[in-house]
């Protein structure tokens, strides 16, 4: 089997896997990073979102060969030495989850959204996260959490 080299949460990995094996399964089964969730296997629910070179990607439909040479960030790697990120703190503060299964993907999707659009309108948040399904469904609370995260991010930046 071919060997693919890529970075996950800042650490280099080489994985011996069939080219078409989904990145999701490599992360969960080979690298023990189970924070990334399977939801549909067709890129429709975004529970499996990871950041590949900073872009949110559905890891369930990303063959491992497409990750070669890339930087992958999973939910486990989002918080750095500084503790939880503003998005994570905002989701906790707003309790923007019910079962929480969609939360890792939602948090990464929101982080990428705020990276592109630091002060999103409610409409932009809904549009930006529309690919993510929360079946419980905590959409109203999630929108509030992303709005709070935008404020927390700004405060964090002005403190720097």
């Amino acid at each position: 089997m071919p060997v693919y080299r890529f970075t996950v949460n800042g650490r280099p990995h080489s994985v011996d896997a069939p080219a078409s094996r989904p990145l999701l399964e490599v992360l969960r089964e080979d690298l023990d990073l189970t924070g990334t969730k399977y939801g549909c296997g067709e890129g429709q629910c975004r529970a499996c979102t990871v950041l590949i070179d900073g872009r949110p990607s559905a890891s369930c439909v990303t063959p491992v060969r497409n990750a070669a040479g890339r930087n992958v960030t999973t939910i486990e790697g989002l918080a750095g030495a500084g503790g939880l990120t503003p998005v994570q703190r905002a989701f906790l503060e707003q309790q923007a989850f019910q079962c929480g299964y969609c939360t890792p993907g939602m948090v990464l999707g929101a982080a990428a959204l705020l990276e592109r659009t630091p002060s999103p309108s409610e409409e932009q948040i809904r549009e930006g996260l529309n690919g993510h399904i929360c079946r419980c469904t905590g959409y109203p609370r999630i929108v509030e959490a992303v709005q709070l995260a935008a404020r927390l991010s700004k405060e964090a930046k002005s403190d720097d």
Partner: peptide, 18 residues
């Protein structure tokens, strides 16, 4: 709040499939 909910935002919580 839900007890132990930090694990939901960090990916630490182990669901049955994890």
């Amino acid at each position: 709040p839900r007890p132990d909910s930090e694990g939901l935002v960090t990916g630490e919580h182990k669901f049955p499939s994890d």
